[in-house]
């Protein structure tokens, strides 16, 4: 990496840019995980034999609400980052709380949907289609849950240390993670839900 620029920008930036770049590399390899699951979903998109198909169960209004929740949580996290750059701890905590509850609602809706599908006969063990559906959507959901746990950890860190360099780095990594999950969700709702409902 170009050393002189890094030194110069270390004065401007109040966080560890190498760690953030490392986290970005982690996110890109996480993208490979999702890519294999998307490929899996595409291949098995019609493998339901005489069992229930996606078209029988997909409720697009429900998915639209989930999508809006995640998208709004993305922008509220962006507002938290703006508060971070303005050195406002309270403002950041408020926006993070809003983000946390939007993400929590999203996870609750997803769990409700899984429960509903399994009880209605569209369970992961029914066909290859529903296996790949559950693996892909639940992997995304597990990541969102991870993001929520990370936010809880950040609330503790922030209450202990305030806005120090470590916490700024963590908040920036979490912001990348959260926006990344929203970007993956675009692929999920298009490939799984919209194309599944055609």
């Amino acid at each position: 990496m170009s050393e002189p620029i890094q030194v110069e920008n270390h004065c401007i930036h109040d966080h560890d840019s190498t760690k953030i770049f490392g986290f970005w590399i982690y996110l890109l390899q996480d993208l490979f995980l999702f890519a294999t699951l998307f490929a899996n979903m595409a291949v098995f998109s019609a493998s339901y034999d005489i069992g229930p198909s996606g078209r029988d169960f997909i409720d697009l209004t429900f998915v639209l609400v989930e999508t809006v929740l995640l998208l709004v949580s993305s922008i509220t996290y962006g507002f938290a980052m703006i508060q971070l750059h303005r050195n406002s701890l309270v403002g950041m905590q408020i926006w993070m709380t809003v983000t946390f509850f939007l993400g929590l609602t999203f996870i609750m809706m997803e769990l409700y949907e899984f429960n509903h599908l399994i009880h209605a006969g569209a369970a992961p063990w029914v066909s290859a289609y529903w296996s790949s559906f559950f693996v892909l959507v639940a992997t995304h959901g597990a990541h969102v849950t991870g993001g929520l746990l990370w936010m809880i950890c950040m609330f503790v860190h922030l209450s202990w240390d305030g806005l120090n360099t470590n916490n700024r780095t963590r908040m920036t990594c979490l912001s990348l993670f959260w926006h990344f999950l929203d970007i993956v969700w675009i692929g999920v709702f298009t490939l799984v839900y919209l194309l599944g409902a055609l």
Partner: peptide
């Protein structure tokens, strides 16, 4: 940020692989 070029290049590599 300082790693802008590296961010973009690694992203293009990952996007092609995906």
């Amino acid at each position: 940020g300082p790693d802008a070029q590296w961010n973009i290049r690694s992203m293009w590599l990952a996007a092609s692989c995906v």
